[in-house]
């Protein structure tokens, strides 16, 4: 559904690198103006507007606070396809790590608790990879904020796809202690 632009609504410049503190300050100050609690004694029309406005405020804050959601929001607005990417094909550079993770999971399923050690190694590897991606993404954010180059957005999209793939692997490696 077409809704007003989140950046415009919050009154902040359209940048990918955002200061979470600044965003929070906007949330608080706008909440003090828009929240339904402040309109409880007003007309039904004003109450309904307060409900819509504060829902929009919270939706905007929730989206822009999270770097991944924020980037996806901008990518979508700039005409990029951010739909589910096929995650079936293992990126070649991850072949070995994915193989080891799957082996460990299989061994654990067979009742071999020693596999937990390998699982933890895999998990750490993937978490490190994700953190590296995040650092790289941050620098790309700054690059786009400065240049506005579309090619940078394409790079960001590729980073996000890779990040999503690795996040799935981390989820897989997060096996509860007792199943």
């Amino acid at each position: 559904m077409s809704s007003p632009d989140f950046y415009q609504f919050l009154g902040i410049p359209r940048r990918l690198a955002l200061d979470p503190k600044e965003l929070e300050t906007r949330l608080y100050s706008l909440s003090r103006k828009l929240h339904p609690d402040l309109f409880a004694r007003k007309s039904a029309a004003e109450q309904s507007k307060a409900l819509d406005d504060s829902a929009l405020l919270n939706d905007a804050f929730r989206t822009l606070r999270d770097p991944v959601k924020r980037a996806e929001y901008v990518l979508k607005a700039e005409g990029f396809d951010i739909g589910e990417q096929s995650t079936k094909d293992v990126p070649p550079e991850l072949l070995e790590e994915v193989f080891e993770l799957n082996m460990a999971l299989e061994e654990l399923r067979m009742g071999d608790d020693d596999a937990r050690e390998q699982l933890e190694i895999s998990r750490t590897t993937f978490v490190n990879m994700r953190d590296e991606i995040d650092v790289e993404t941050q620098s790309k954010f700054a690059e786009w904020d400065a240049s506005g180059e579309r090619s940078v957005l394409a790079e960001i999209r590729a980073l996000l796809n890779r990040r999503k793939y690795i996040a799935n692997l981390i989820d897989k490696a997060n096996v509860p202690d007792r199943v």
Binding site: S3, L51, A55, L56
Partner: peptide
Amino acid sequence: NSTIPASAGET
């Protein structure tokens, strides 16, 4: 844990 009011649209 989304702050309310909150909304989402679907087609």
